[in-house]
């Protein structure tokens, strides 16, 4: 699974990196973020683009898996 490490980056960089990753390939993408609002932004971006997103807490933030 491809991993986008967006931990600690300012908005809107996490969404931009996610957009790039989804554009580059069809498989699932795991996005690592730090802040709750970034997790929500990624989940919303996935939903708006017809993709399913599942989040889980990690040691230093969240991992959002876009299937």
């Amino acid at each position: 699974m491809r991993i986008v490490d967006a931990r600690g980056l300012s908005c809107p960089e996490p969404v931009m990196l996610t957009e790039d990753a989804l554009r580059e390939g069809k498989g699932p993408v795991k996005v690592l973020v730090t802040e709750p609002h970034q997790r929500m932004n990624i989940e919303k971006y996935a939903k708006d683009h017809g993709r399913k997103a599942v989040s889980e807490k990690t040691e230093d933030g969240f991992a959002v898996v876009i299937e």
Partner: peptide, 13 residues
């Protein structure tokens, strides 16, 4: 600038 790769880098805990 953002599209051209602008970033102020990562913040850390």
């Amino acid at each position: 600038a953002l599209k051209k790769g602008f970033s102020l880098g990562r913040a850390h805990a």
